[in-house]
């Protein structure tokens, strides 16, 4: 079936099957920043924005994107690079496999919450698992990025 939606600010028309998930559709179309880390909707690697909200692209059915706006990290390259530079300066990208989804959640956090507390940051980012870094370096980077005073 055909869907019309906005992808990274571009009007887009794609053919999708009714049981296809957005993560697979995006990868099929060359958006290789989309990673899948689990089968159970709980690792956060595949995070993209749907109508600006961070969502699991592995769990969103592609046909439901009809009329919606989807954003991947490719669509916010500059903003992503700004945070990525801070993350990389900490060494906190490590294997990098979970980074695109993590960055998409961090940017969403910045858009959604003004002056978040450390607790609010942790709560917002809890759905993004990372096995390499132990999260501490990511937190340092996020706090630097958001201008939250380091403890």
């Amino acid at each position: 079936m055909q869907i019309e939606f906005t992808l990274n600010d571009q009007p887009t028309v794609w053919d999708v099957s009714p049981d296809e998930f957005l993560a697979d559709t995006l990868r099929k179309h060359g958006f290789l920043s989309i990673r899948k880390g689990c089968n159970t909707s709980c690792c956060g690697l595949c995070t993209v924005w749907i109508d600006g909200k961070p969502t699991l692209s592995c769990t969103a059915l592609s046909f439901r994107m009809q009329g919606k706006s989807v954003t991947t990290i490719e669509g916010v390259a500059e903003e992503a690079a700004e945070f990525a530079r801070i993350l990389v300066a900490e060494g906190a990208e490590q294997c990098g496999f979970c980074s695109p989804g993590f960055i998409m959640t961090v940017l969403a956090l910045k858009h959604e919450l003004a002056a978040p507390t450390e607790e609010e940051i942790v709560h917002y980012l809890t759905g993004n698992l990372c096995r390499c870094t132990g999260y501490m370096g990511q937190m340092r980077a996020v706090k630097t990025y958001l201008g939250v005073t380091q403890r």
Binding site: L32, S33, I34, R35, T72, I73, E74, A77, A80, A81, A84, R85, L87, V88, A89, G91, E93, C95, G96, F97, S99, P100, I103
Partner: peptide
């Protein structure tokens, strides 16, 4: 020196590398 990883920006921002 704590230099950033040489491939850091590429992998952090989702470039096809895996």
């Amino acid at each position: 020196k704590g230099v950033p990883k040489i491939d850091g920006m590429a992998i952090a921002t989702g470039k096809p590398a895996y």
